[in-house]
């Protein structure tokens, strides 16, 4: 599974399609040397013609398997058709098997109905052509089947490869869109909150600078302004940290586990009771802040010896109960994402 999820596997599929498309014509060359009624002459013709048309065919397959538009595809298909059909009387009685490559290229290069018409014509024409060249009548159906399966295998591989490439590119587009959306959300959020706070700091700083120019009688005012500026800066810093943490959104389960671990480490015997049906994946900022405040309070209390954190599923989400030494606090967690 990991192999097929990897980008490398997607990159290799067009190579696989090209390899398959190259293998079938080579088989055809071997037949042209060895099949009954064929000889070295037909074999050499077959080899020479294959050397001429195969690069064109592989070019068609390579572009189609990557889902890329083929430049001057019509011309290269025409050249391939001329070479293959012209070689029919010379390259032996099994040569019409090479129509498989031509038929596959026709489907890959030509648009809509024309490609299918040409494909069917070539598949149908292969058997009669072979019979005319002296192939035994009982071998003709096998030749037709061979053309069909050969072209079908190439087309299937090309389709699979192109689909994988398209899927990968769609996934990348979705990922990019999600990143852009998240950036926009963070940007808006920062502008609305921290942006306003920073502007207020700048304004206070400017006021303090003005007060520095004023007569010494206003010193108390300047001190008040500067200490206000320091308080605001600290508050803004704390808010910035909270925001940055808020963007990460850990799972509720992980947060509860860590809370239990921290409390146990502080000497408070802590039990976590979770429903078997599971709990929401994420936790909204408000209940998260309430949970953290409860944990902080418990960590600060010296006398607490035992604590139980219970999560109960309700219609709206989950209700957390933090019970420490008989005192309970409840936190309602709205459902954001079900497990």
């Amino acid at each position: 599974m990991a192999l097929w999820r990897s980008d490398r596997a997607v990159r290799l599929t067009p190579v696989g399609a090209v390899a398959c498309a190259g293998l079938l014509p080579l088989l055809q060359v071997a037949l042209a040397f060895s099949y009954p009624d064929n000889d070295v002459r037909t074999g050499l013709w077959s080899l020479a013609v294959t050397v001429v048309y195969l690069p064109l065919h592989l070019r068609h397959v390579w572009y189609a398997a990557r889902g890329v538009r083929l430049p001057a595809g019509g011309w290269t298909l025409a050249a391939m058709a001329v070479v293959i059909i012209a070689a029919t009387p010379l390259a032996g009685n099994t040569w019409p098997r090479a129509y498989a490559g031509l038929a596959a290229s026709a489907v890959l290069v030509l648009p809509g109905p024309w490609s299918f018409v040409l494909y069917l014509s070539l598949v149908i024409a292969a058997a009669p052509a072979s019979l005319l060249l002296g192939l035994p009548w009982n071998a003709a159906p096998w030749l037709t089947l061979s053309v069909l399966t050969g072209s079908g295998a190439v087309l299937l591989l090309v389709w699979l490869s192109a689909a994988l490439v398209r899927l990968q590119s769609a996934r990348q587009v979705l990922a990019q869109r999600a990143v852009a959306q998240e950036r926009r959300r963070i940007d808006d959020d920062l502008r609305r909150t921290l942006g306003a706070a920073l502007e207020s700091l700048a304004a206070r700083g400017a006021r303090a600078a003005d007060l520095l120019q004023s007569p010494p009688g206003r010193r108390a005012e300047l001190v008040a302004e500067l200490s206000g500026l320091a308080d605001d800066s600290r508050r803004t810093l704390a808010e910035a940290r909270q925001r940055v943490r808020g963007y990460r959104r850990p799972s509720l389960r992980a947060e509860l586990d860590t809370a239990a671990t921290l409390l146990s480490a502080a000497g408070i015997e802590t039990r976590l009771r979770l429903p078997r049906t599971g709990i929401p994946d994420t936790i909204a900022p408000e209940p998260r802040a309430a949970l953290r405040a409860a944990v902080t309070r418990l960590l600060g209390s010296e006398g607490v010896s035992a604590c139980t954190i219970t999560a109960a599923v309700s219609t709206d989400g989950v209700r957390l109960e933090v019970r420490a030494d008989g005192v309970a606090e409840t936190i309602d967690v709205q459902t954001e994402g079900r497990p």
Binding site: A238, R241, Q242, R245, R248, P250, A254, E255, D257, T258, A259, T261, L262, A266, L291, R292, A293, V295, T296, L299, G300, S301, E302
Partner: peptide
Amino acid sequence: AGERVIDPELVAAALETGS
């Protein structure tokens, strides 16, 4: 005086990171 003092920021950060 016998109390325990843990900065709430650190508790939040610890819960965020996980054990």
